[in-house]
Simulated scan of single mutants.
Amino acid sequence: MKPQHLLAAATLVLATTAFAAGDPHDHAHAHTPLHGGVVVEVKDIDYELVAQPSVIQLHLRDHGKPADVSNATARLTLLTGTEKQEVVLKPAGDKLEATGSFKVAPGSKAVAVVTVAGKPSTVRFVLK
């Protein structure tokens, strides 16, 4: 077998194996938005960002169940075009929230640093 054929065959085998392996954890829960936002999973926690012009909410779910955010904090950097806005989210019932005036549009990017139980996580979103 020629070296280029061997390389192509090995690449195909590895790609098929990686595809078949799938995600390394059990997906007994869905990663779908429950509040009309954008969902991203980081370290087995689902973060759902709901960004509107007057309110930004961040919902956290641990394996499909709402996470306790009573002592959580979050700092969000919102990027819309060339505009950058820093937002502090605070506990509001079962979510983290900030009210005010926010420039949000499809394609806006947001980076949140969320601290729960003293452990920070960085979460990146692209709004739809």
Rank of each mutant, 00 (worst) to 15 (best):
Leu7Val: 12
Ala74Leu: 12
Val38Gly: 09
Val87Glu: 00
Met1Val: 09
Ala30Gln: 14
Val104Arg: 05
Gln52Arg: 12
Glu83Thr: 06
Ala10His: 05
Leu12Gln: 01
Leu58Gly: 04
Gly93Asp: 14
Ala30Ile: 12
Lys128Met: 00
Asp94Glu: 12
Val40Met: 14
Thr73Ser: 14
Ala110Met: 13
Lys103Asn: 05
Asp62Glu: 14
Arg124Gln: 05
Pro66Tyr: 06
Ala15Cys: 11
Ala8Trp: 09
Lys84Arg: 14
Leu79Phe: 04
Ala9Ile: 09
Ala51Pro: 08
Arg124Ser: 02
Asp94Thr: 13
Thr16Asp: 03
Pro106Gln: 14
Thr16Asn: 10
Val123Leu: 04
Val113Gln: 15
Ala105Trp: 08
Thr82Gly: 02
Val126Asn: 07
Ala8Arg: 08
Leu127Ile: 03
Glu48Lys: 10
Lys65Leu: 10
Thr17Pro: 01
Ala15Glu: 11
Thr11Val: 04
Lys43Glu: 13
Val55Ile: 05
Pro33Cys: 11
Val50Trp: 15
Lys2Leu: 15
Gly37Thr: 08
Leu96His: 05
Leu58Ala: 07
Leu6Ile: 10
Pro106Gly: 03
Lys119Cys: 03
Thr122Phe: 05
Ala117Ile: 09
Asp26Ile: 00
Gln85Glu: 13
Leu89Gly: 09
Tyr47Met: 10
Ser121Pro: 01
Ala30Arg: 15
Ala8Leu: 14
Val88Ala: 15
Ala10Gln: 08
Val39Tyr: 11
Pro66Val: 08
Arg61Trp: 05
His59Ala: 07
Val40Asn: 13
Glu97Arg: 02
Val104His: 06
Ser54Cys: 03
Ala18Ser: 04
Phe102Lys: 01
Val111Thr: 02
Asp94Gln: 07
Ala9Tyr: 06
Asp26Ser: 05
Pro120Gln: 13
Glu97Ile: 03
Val39Gly: 07
Ala105Asn: 12
Val114Cys: 07
Leu14Trp: 02
His29Lys: 11
Leu49Ala: 08
Asp46Asn: 15
Val55Cys: 00
Val104Cys: 02
Leu7Cys: 04
Asp62Cys: 00
Ala117Thr: 11
Ala98Pro: 08
Glu97Asn: 09
Leu49Pro: 07
Leu34Cys: 09
Lys119Pro: 05
Thr77Asn: 11
Ala18Arg: 03
Leu7Tyr: 07
Lys103Ile: 04
Arg75Cys: 10
Leu127Ser: 00
Val126Gly: 06
Thr17Lys: 01
Lys128Tyr: 09
Leu58Asn: 08
Leu6Ala: 12
Ala51Phe: 06
Glu86Cys: 09
Asn71Trp: 01
Glu48Ile: 10
Val39Thr: 11
Pro120Lys: 07
Leu78Asn: 00
His63Gln: 12
Gln52Pro: 06
Ala8Ser: 03
Asp68Cys: 03
Leu60Ala: 10
Leu6Ser: 10
Arg124Ala: 09
Ile45Glu: 13
Leu58Cys: 13
Lys84Pro: 01
Ala10Lys: 04
Ala92Gln: 02
Val55Ala: 00
Lys65Phe: 07
His63Ala: 08
Ser108Asn: 05
Leu34Glu: 15
Gln57Cys: 06
Asn71Asp: 11
His27Arg: 14
Gln4Asp: 08
Leu58Phe: 06
Glu86Thr: 14
Val111Asp: 01
Thr82Met: 01
Thr115Gly: 03
Phe102Tyr: 03
Gln52Asp: 10
Pro106Leu: 08
Glu86Tyr: 01
Pro53Gly: 12
Gly36Val: 11
Ser121Ala: 11
Thr82Lys: 00
Phe19Cys: 10
Val50Lys: 15
Val87Pro: 01
His59Glu: 04
Lys43Arg: 13
